[in-house]
Simulated assay, not measured.
Amino acid sequence: MGDLLITVAPTGAETTKADCPQLPTTPEELVETARRCEAAGAAMIHVHIRDAEHRPTLDPARLKDTVAALRESTGLVLQLSTGGSVHDPLDQRLKVLDAAPDSCSLTMGTTNFGDDVFSNPWPFICELYQLSQEREVVPEFELFDLGHVAALHRLLDKYGAPYGGKVHCDLVMGVPGGMPGTADALVAAVAALPSSVTSWSATGIGRSTLPVGLASLSKGGHLRVGMEDVLTLSRGVPVEHNEQLVSRAVELGRLAQREPMTPVEARGLLGLA
């Protein structure tokens, strides 16, 4: 049985297709990426979508079509980003759950995001969380800083457990404006997590990908990888396909004597029906 959840985040909202032609932005590219990453060892996919001009979008019809296409083509746990792009309004971000994903990201606070601000005010967090409970969508709590860990304590104390009863979070590390992508920061964040957390993963942005991944494995955590978070395999060597990042995560896991979970095993970990 697998004991390592590998999530692939193939696209994101920041990188342009013009700057990175191999980024999967069309529905066909996303499905092809999902299939190959599932075969390589991913069990969950974290999805941002683009419009016909490859720009970030939260178009409801396109979200529903993407969920349907991925469900038809793969067995992956489907997680939609409720962050969208940093420019998306809060009301549109709430409507992401109308597409009925298995899971959704739920960021636990506002953070500086490079030169931009990723807005997640407390009333929005509470509304999104209660909506996920009502819609039976499992949230993945995204934690960009130690203040977000404290906010997770507050949210769970106020509204109780998520749908499914499991509490899964992801430490997003190395974003300019958030906590650094270091082993020391990861250890501090994990030590501060609520006792009700049942599983956690870590994401290292850019050059912090490998340090964060190795630290996560050593602490018993899971991994999120993908071209949303890093575009190079090493200095000057671009990623050509998300499958490469998933395969590397599998290899690192096996060095730590951990095997990748299947999507069925991941559903059990996350409390999905």
Rank of each mutant, 00 (worst) to 15 (best):
G114T: 08
G114I: 08
G114E: 06
G114F: 07
G114W: 11
D115H: 15
D115N: 14
D115G: 08
D115V: 14
D115L: 14
D115C: 12
D116C: 13
D116R: 14
D116I: 02
D116Y: 14
V117Q: 09
F118C: 08
F118V: 07
F118K: 04
F118H: 02
F118R: 07
S119V: 14
S119C: 14
S119F: 13
N120W: 09
N120I: 06
N120Y: 15
N120Q: 14
N120G: 07
P121S: 10
P121G: 12
P121F: 04
P121C: 12
P121D: 12
P121K: 04
P121R: 12
W122S: 11
W122T: 13
W122L: 15
W122N: 09
W122R: 15
P123T: 10
P123F: 03
P123V: 11
P123W: 07
P123D: 06
P123H: 10
F124V: 02
F124Y: 15
F124T: 00
F124E: 03
I125K: 02
I125E: 01
I125C: 05
I125L: 11
I125T: 06
I125A: 01
C126V: 10
C126T: 13
C126G: 10
C126I: 09
C126L: 12
C126F: 05
E127F: 03
E127P: 01
E127Y: 02
E127W: 00
L128V: 05
L128T: 00
L128M: 13
Y129E: 11
Y129L: 06
Y129R: 11
Y129Q: 05
Q130N: 07
Q130D: 08
Q130K: 03
Q130W: 05
Q130E: 15
Q130I: 03
Q130T: 06
L131G: 06
L131E: 05
L131K: 13
L131R: 12
L131F: 06
S132M: 01
S132L: 00
S132C: 08
S132V: 01
S132T: 06
Q133M: 13
Q133Y: 03
Q133H: 00
Q133V: 02
Q133N: 01
E134Y: 06
E134C: 01
E134K: 14
E134P: 01
R135Q: 12
R135S: 07
R135K: 13
E136L: 09
E136F: 06
E136I: 02
V137E: 01
V137F: 02
V137I: 12
V138W: 04
V138P: 00
V138I: 14
V138C: 12
P139H: 06
P139D: 09
P139M: 11
P139Q: 04
P139Y: 06
E140F: 11
E140H: 07
E140M: 06
E140K: 09
E140W: 04
F141Y: 12
F141G: 00
F141C: 00
F141P: 00
F141L: 03
F141W: 08
E142A: 03
E142W: 07
E142Q: 14
E142S: 09
E142K: 08
E142G: 10
E142Y: 05
E142T: 05
E142V: 10
L143Y: 08
L143A: 03
F144Y: 15
D145E: 14
D145W: 03
D145S: 08
D145L: 07
D145C: 09
L146F: 05
L146R: 14
L146Q: 05
L146W: 09
L146G: 05
L146V: 08
L146D: 10
G147A: 12
G147Y: 06
G147H: 08
H148N: 07
H148D: 12
H148Y: 11
H148E: 09
